[in-house]
Simulated scan of single mutants.
Amino acid sequence: MTARVGVITFPGTLDDVDAARAVRLSGAEAVSLWHADADLKGVDAVIVPGGFSYGDYLRCGAIAKFAPVMKSVVEAAEGGMPVLGICNGFQVLCEAGLLPGALTRNAGLHFVCRDVWLEVANNTTAWTTRFELGADILVPLKSGEGRYVASEAVLDELEGDGRVVFRYRDNPNGSMRDIAGISSANGRVVGLMPHPEHATEALTGPSDDGLGLFLSVLDAVLAAA
């Protein structure tokens, strides 16, 4: 069986090609999904990639959540399909209600573009089983609205349930409790601000650490087959 992973393209998406390449490097088949088409084409998992969907008008991801493809993604995620949101994709998943909290302007109001070290805080999600718990991974971050915020009650719930998946070692954007990525309650939906798809080969990225997410979901899909 060859796992099929869908990669969505919205107007303004710019990291879909890199996400699809990361999927192929993991050994899965990358399937292009169009924002205006509700058909998920029978994929086994979905990636909502980074960029500036619909120009980031209103709030980042606020318009994308209404796209026909996202209605299908929400339904599929509620049925247990693995979904990964990267950067703008993380924002879209929060806006769509698949993940709690929100992403706001970075502390200092500057766009941050640099490689960052992340701690793997949960290696039991569908996207993180290939990592050692507590491992450090090096991936790029590039966002102006990447500061994760939520109420203290939500933050406590995320911490208590082990749903903080990645933490910044050196918090570059003021995210509450150093949170770089979180998961749904069942661990099937994960969102993070840094870009693992830009860290899949040592030649072109700061590391190949990001490939672990794509290998992990391949394992999850094959285990469920």
Rank of each mutant, 00 (worst) to 15 (best):
G55K: 11
G55V: 02
E78N: 07
V48E: 14
P49V: 04
S53N: 05
R59K: 15
V46A: 07
A67M: 07
H35A: 02
A76F: 15
D39I: 11
V74C: 00
Y54K: 00
A28Q: 05
L25S: 01
K71Q: 12
L40F: 05
Y54Q: 02
A76V: 14
L58S: 11
S53G: 07
R24I: 13
V48Y: 06
D37A: 05
Y57P: 07
D44I: 03
V69E: 05
E78T: 14
D44A: 15
K65Y: 00
A28E: 09
A28W: 07
G50M: 03
A28Y: 08
D44F: 05
G61L: 03
G27F: 00
D44H: 08
Y54V: 04
D56A: 10
A64L: 03
A30G: 07
A30E: 06
L33A: 05
V43Q: 03
V74P: 00
G42I: 11
G50L: 02
C60N: 12
G55M: 12
V48W: 08
G79F: 12
K65P: 01
L33N: 12
A36E: 15
Y57A: 09
P49A: 09
V31N: 09
V43F: 06
P68Q: 01
A45K: 14
E78R: 13
V48Q: 13
C60M: 08
Y57V: 13
W34Y: 14
R59P: 09
Y54I: 05
A28C: 13
R59I: 04
A77C: 06
L25E: 10
G79D: 10
R24Q: 06
L40G: 09
A28R: 06
L25F: 00
V73A: 01
S53M: 05
G27L: 01
V23P: 03
G50H: 03
C60T: 13
V31R: 04
R24A: 14
S32T: 10
F66L: 10
A62P: 04
G50C: 10
A38V: 15
P68C: 01
G51R: 10
A62V: 13
L40S: 04
G42V: 15
V69Y: 14
A62N: 12
V31Y: 09
V46F: 14
K65E: 02
D39Q: 11
Y54L: 02
F66G: 10
G51Y: 01
G51I: 03
G55Q: 12
D44S: 04
C60D: 11
F52E: 15
A67L: 08
A30R: 08
V46S: 14
V31P: 08
